[in-house]
């Protein structure tokens, strides 16, 4: 028989926490070795118990879940931590992932899904509640688009928008109040930065990268 997974539950909601612990203790191969009502308390229990896996709420008094996760990561970079929260707030979600959470589960998870998630997390997989997956993907896309946008200057983006409207060099120069030579210089830089060969390709690539 496998050694049971040693769990710690951190949640300030006493009714939820006690119920959850009672539920976890009924699940096979799990053992709850510690509980805490806020992050500060959790750090003390963590040092003493060194659990295999921590279930961590986010919105808690004294020290919230993300601060706690950051502190735990400093004590043990390999510690497995799953956030278990009602928050679908982007700031909490992305904050937890950036702080190094191994997963983000909502409290509306079914008990059998929670169990399989714990097993997956112990196997080294990252897990997300289906409700938050699309938010993570959106955030990644947004951040990629922001990075792409920073490749080009604001003026180059303006020139690209003109190219996308099918404007010629002289028309662009007129619209942006710059010389045709300056327009050509901007276009040459755009082609280099986007690694394309002509204006049409530049517009297609810019559209693909959500620059325009």
């Amino acid at each position: 028989m496998n050694k049971p997974v040693r769990l710690m539950v951190v949640d300030d909601h006493a009714l939820f926490r006690r119920g959850l612990i009672s539920l976890l203790e009924e699940m096979p191969n799990l053992q709850v070795v510690g509980e805490a009502t806020n992050g500060k308390e959790a750090l003390g229990v963590f040092e003493k118990q060194r659990p295999d896996l921590i279930l961590l709420d986010i919105n808690m008094p004294v020290m919230n879940g993300i601060e706690t996760l950051t502190a735990i990561r400093k004590l043990n970079p390999d510690q497995k931590v799953l956030m278990l929260t009602i928050s679908q707030n982007d700031e909490d979600l992305i904050g937890a992932i950036v702080a190094g959470a191994n997963g983000y589960l909502l409290k509306n998870t079914e008990p059998d899904v929670l169990h399989s998630t714990l097993v997956q997390a112990m196997a080294g997989n990252s897990v997300l509640s289906p409700e938050v997956t699309s938010r993570v993907l959106q955030a990644v896309r947004r951040s990629q688009a922001d990075r792409n946008r920073s490749i080009l200057s604001d003026r180059e983006i303006d020139v690209l928008k003109c190219l996308a409207r099918g404007q010629t060099t002289s028309q662009i120069a007129g619209v942006l109040f710059i010389s045709e030579n300056t327009v050509k210089t901007h276009i040459r830089h755009i082609l280099e930065k986007l690694e394309v060969n002509n204006r049409a390709e530049a517009v297609a690539r810019a559209s693909q990268l959500e620059l325009i």
Binding site: L15, F16, R18, G19, L20, I21, S22, L23, E26, I86, K107, N108, T109, E110, P111, L114
Partner: peptide, 13 residues
């Protein structure tokens, strides 16, 4: 409760 962990947790407890 619409939250199964809360509902079933209380039931088990």
């Amino acid at each position: 409760s619409a939250n199964p962990l809360f509902r079933e947790g209380l039931r088990t407890l």
